[in-house]
Design a binder for these strands. Sequence first.
RNA 1: GCCGCUGUAGCUCAGUGGUAGAGCGCACCCUUGGUAAGGGUGAGGUCGAGAGUUCAAAUCUCUCCAGCGGCUCCA
Length: 692
Amino acid sequence: MPQITLPDGSVKSFEHPVSAFDVAMSIGDRLARACVGALIDEELSDLSTVIDKDCTLALVTEKTRDKQDDPNAMYLLRHSTAHVMAEAIQRIVPGAMLVYGPPLENGFYYDIAFPEDRPLKEGDFEAIEAEMAKIVEEDRPFTRYELEYSEGLSKVKSEGSKYKLDNAHRAHEAGSLSLSFYATGEPGRDWEDLCRGPHVPSTGRIGAFKVMSLASSYWHGDENSDRLTRVYGTAFFSKKDLAAYLDRIEEAKKRDHRVLGKKLKLFHIDETVGQGLILWTPNGSVVRKELQSFISMELAKQGYHEVFTPHIGKLDLYRTSGHFPYYAESQFPPLIERDHMAQLSEEGCSCAQLSNHMTTGEIEGFMLKPMNCPHHIKVFDSQPHSYKDLPVRLAEFGTVYRWEQSGELNGMTRVRGFTQDDAHLFCTPDQVAHEVQGCLLLVKTIFSVLGMEDYRVRVGLRDPDSGKYTGDPANWDKAEQACREAAQTLGVPFTEEPGEAAFYGPKIDFVVKDVIGREWQLGTVQVDYNLPERFDLSYVGPDNEKHRPVMIHRAPFGSMERFIGVLIEHFAGAFPVWLAPEQVRVLPISEKSNDYAHEVMSALHAVGIRATLDDHDQRVQAKIKNGSEMKIPYLIVVGPRDAENRAVSVRAFGIEKDLGSMPLDSFVSAISEEYRTKGRSTVRQRFETVKA
RNA sequence: GCCGCUGUAGCUCAGUGGUAGAGCGCACCCUUGGUAAGGGUGAGGUCGAGAGUUCAAAUCUCUCCAGCGGCUCCA
């Protein structure tokens, strides 16, 4: 007879098998009513699950004790809502075949194959939601039943969906001896779906839901397989929670770098220039320049040397590096020399022949560089090296071009031309660990100055079962260990991911989320044994013999485009003084104060502060509103009173009222200090010292 | 590349077959104002591009281009 251990350690004994719901009832009927599921021996289960042996049991309620969403409850709710949506869709579009409908972090989706002559459109959402509301209103129980595998399989077969049949096969392959089905209501009478569950007790528990969007997807994620329609939705226990979620999405959109980029005039993408090609406008250029010089300074401290290399290189260079033709699909097409072109044209060369000629190397041409490494290798190899020279660290803000699929392009975060904060380190095998650590130190320094703490670190290791890797296994072991140890020195949580290494070496990636919750890889540090081999690089060792150096590719911030895109969102457009395109705006109270305002602006310009003057014929309230919307760090109001005292009235971004008045000279020195120290000393602090 | 949605003034957007609109921004005038929008006047548009249907197209159809969400991809 079951002895059930509850989370507080107490044990309940029952004479007969009981359901999780019965246990809840035995504690209290209010609790039972609040329950949506149960964790039985840590496994999320239906509330109706019958317990016939000893176990631990934790009841899952809509909210945790501290009124937060319970992730398990949300999982049950959203999984269940996916069923309700699927039923509604099948009522509206007969012949729609269900494929797979899992819950997600913020909702759920259902992949569905629609008849070709009846695709789902956004215009159908209203009708779907209306059907869903009916099903919720009917408050039908989710009823689980299981069939022995072969019996279940013949049931699924009789229903004629290859997708569900495939799901059944997969369940079997994963070790299931039976198949479970969930009826929304009564089996045999109401709608049902092959499903492993679990679910909330009944549709009435779904408090609020919304069909969000449509997308296409591939069956099994395989682009050569069937194209499915993915319908996204979300659900909450209360309408209030749903409204709050939708508000959060609206708020996040305001931080979106594409929205702020326009509003704050940071960058422009012009379709006549080309998709995915960023035009840095003056404001954005200031941010980029400040960041680049900061990085450059840190690089110099670490013994890097900056180089400049051109944007193109000969095709043959990329044959040696292996970029061409292997990655030709993600590159802009090669530039063919004019004489070759003319000759080929005379010979009546077809496109296919041209492509073959290029692959075999019979045609020379140039390529927009997809990576900086070949150029840097040639810089390294332009002179012989002794082991005493190593490591050689060559850095460049190098612009590269890649042919990203059109559907992938996204503001500044996914583009076709971008500038990496790239560097290549050439070192002895023994120096790898130290150099990798140096790269991570750089990341840590710069992230901490920017206040970026919300990133994750991924250590990509080789998949021991795969033979795709190049290089000596002993070196791999050492390099992987070096990466692992370096990641530990960062003091940030990291995950080791076997199979995520490049084919030529292990790597460390830095991943951040954007406002919509999408993850982007920023920086990467990669150990490479392959390219030194391909380019036959060498240095002379203490034994007077030639040795092969190891290369480390590192672009700790990825690209200036992506990094600044993420940075815009990180600061919600309100850059700190050192990065702000416009650091100070001077607001004269009226024309009468324009002369003094000009004087103030000149004093700021004289010390290199980016200051502007708003001499529009408006009241100061309006100027403050405009200045605040542009997220300018300091607005200084000057009127006759200030002019008389040679003072300024200071207003800092994000503070509702003004900080007070300060002598002009003090403000100039305080903001210079804030600029120079990247915010370690601020104008605000100056006010506080004065008060103290 | 795939599916869906969107494209109207510099920006945000309204406009369902019959003379292209609003707010913000911009210019000028009035106002000379002390901490989140003072008032007025005005300029500004091949309605993403091309083709079609129609007496008539921003509006309906098709093709293309671009953006957005997702899928796939990312050396």
